[in-house]
Amino acid sequence: MANPDTTTDPSLLPDDDPSRRDVILIAAGAFATIGGAAMLWPLLDQMNPDASTLSMASIDVDVGPVEEGQAITVMWRGKPVFIRHRTAKEIEEAKDVKLDVLIDPFARNANLPEDAPATDANRAATDLEPWLVMIGICTHLGCIPKGQAVGDYKGDYGGWFCPCHGSQYDTAGRVRVGPAPQNMYIPPYTFASDTQLKIG
């Protein structure tokens, strides 16, 4: 697409390569586009969690003082983590649930493969069955469910009840009544001993 003016411009001889201007035009446009796109990324990426936020990645918790039937809440990455010392009755109830009645069939356990089924064994701490460690945020719209304090209403399944839109969770933190779509997430954690918990 030669510019018609070039035919009358003495500085551009007719035998000059007719695509010379096109090359310059395309190259200039391409550099401007790539440069603009390269600048756009820092402008967008600056909003992602910064280095100081990422550095708060793990915490240590001594769960020794938490008696059977009690629960504590700790903060990890700005989120509440529920740590519940479950009673034998609560464990039995969680184990008796058939997987096909669950709304979300996956364990949502960061320590297990993504497709691990939501059995109680996959939800509770490995070899430390009474302990349930999970992020205490309703998977619907992010409210904090009730059920940590002794007097709280825990819903029909004895676990947690979200006051915002009525979701209910069982004693393994699995959603049993919607609108929440998923079981509460289990963060990456390890037990260094029976009472030393490291989250993150």
Binding site: M47, P49, D50, T53, G78
Partner: peptide, 24 residues
């Protein structure tokens, strides 16, 4: 997340500038 797993979470953490609503 129910359309493309991870997309929603990535987007929300980008909006938050953290792993929860906070100062940023």
């Amino acid at each position: 997340d129910s359309l493309i797993p991870g997309l929603g979470t990535t987007l929300v953490e980008w909006i938050w500038g953290g792993f929860a609503v906070g100062g940023p």
